[in-house]
Amino acid sequence: MESTYLNCLALFGVGGAHPGGLNLTKRILSKEKIDGSSKILDVGCGTGQTSAYIAKEYGSHVTALDNNKIMLEKAGRRFQSMNLPIEIRHGSAENLPFENHTFDFILSESVTAFTDVSKTVPEFKRVLKPNGVLLAVEMVRDKDISGQQMKEILDFYGVKQLLSEQEWRSAFQKAGFEQIEMEKVELQPDIQQVGVSNDYSLSKQIHPSFYEIFEKHHHLSIVYKDILACGKFRCTV
């Protein structure tokens, strides 16, 4: 398996890898009108922490999608152990395997930035129902940076772009989202250290190189703490 940041998250089975973790997710969802009739897509569901919370807390119809089969296997075990009727789908955010106007809500927690935003955001718009809501927690470039700094971030995280707040807004607007709200999320670099999170689903064999990736992520989050911000976006169709 290639030694990448995303594969590292899969092998460690990190639940709530996005800044703020599940506590932030709970706060975001508490402000929405979600009930048992809501159809919700958790894009890049990972090990299924958010999907499981929504299904248990709200009784909603939840679909958990990820393009990493290791993550989906771990999510499936979580759902089965909790006896939750969550639909699991393998697929890409850039080409969602759903019909138009399927979902009331889409959650993207540190996912969209790892895709081609120009393809993924229009897909979100396509599968949302009229008046549907996109809730996205994403990496934001808070300041101008050098080419060398940009390359280090893009290469390590495997992201295709590092967007500013205005560039994110433009992407949402271009896709047809009519109302876009953004709130900064305070980053706390130490929450992603190995052993700190209480939601891990470790694979049986993890090469030492993946521990090094985890530590480098922690290092970069400190080095670039004044450059890499996190934005909570709420976009409505």
Rank of each mutant, 00 (worst) to 15 (best):
N23H: 10
Q80C: 10
P85C: 08
R169E: 01
S51C: 06
D104H: 10
V121A: 06
L24G: 11
H207M: 03
G195F: 07
Q188G: 03
E212H: 13
L84W: 11
T102C: 12
D104F: 03
T112R: 02
Q192K: 09
A64D: 00
S203V: 06
I54P: 04
E183G: 08
F210A: 06
H217I: 09
Q193I: 07
E94P: 08
R141V: 02
G13R: 03
I88H: 00
L9I: 08
S201M: 10
D190A: 15
I86A: 05
F172N: 04
Q161Y: 02
H101I: 13
P208N: 05
K216R: 15
D104T: 05
D142F: 12
V196P: 02
K225R: 15
L107T: 08
R78T: 11
K31W: 03
Y58P: 06
F114W: 02
Y58C: 09
R126H: 10
Y224G: 04
R141I: 04
L84Q: 10
Q173L: 14
K151T: 10
N68A: 03
K216L: 11
V62I: 09
H218N: 08
T115E: 00
L128Q: 03
V43A: 14
S92T: 01
Q173T: 13
G36W: 07
A171V: 01
E186A: 06
F79Q: 05
F214K: 13
V137W: 05
F114G: 00
E178Y: 09
P122M: 00
H61T: 13
D104E: 09
F124N: 08
R27E: 13
L24Q: 12
H101F: 12
L11R: 10
M150S: 13
Q205R: 01
R141W: 11
P189L: 12
E99Q: 14
V117T: 14
T115V: 06
L187Q: 05
L65I: 08
K56G: 09
T4M: 02
K119R: 15
N100K: 13
R77K: 15
P85E: 14
M150E: 15
F214H: 10
I88S: 00
L65N: 02
H219Q: 15
T63I: 02
V194F: 13
V62P: 00
I227E: 12
S37H: 12
L65K: 04
Q161H: 04
K232G: 05
I88K: 03
M182D: 03
N100V: 13
N23G: 09
Y200K: 02
N198P: 04
M82I: 10
I180G: 05
V185W: 03
V159L: 02
G132F: 04
N198L: 08
Q179P: 02
V43R: 03
Y5A: 05
D42K: 12
S203I: 02
G195W: 06
S170D: 14
L228T: 05
S197K: 07
I191G: 00
D35I: 01
G36F: 09
R27D: 12
K160P: 01
E181Y: 12
Q173V: 10
F105Y: 15
Q149M: 11
S51N: 04
L135W: 07
E167H: 00
D66C: 01
V62Y: 07
P19H: 01
G13E: 07
P19F: 00
F98T: 06
E123N: 00
A52N: 09
L135D: 13
I40W: 08
D155S: 13
K143C: 06
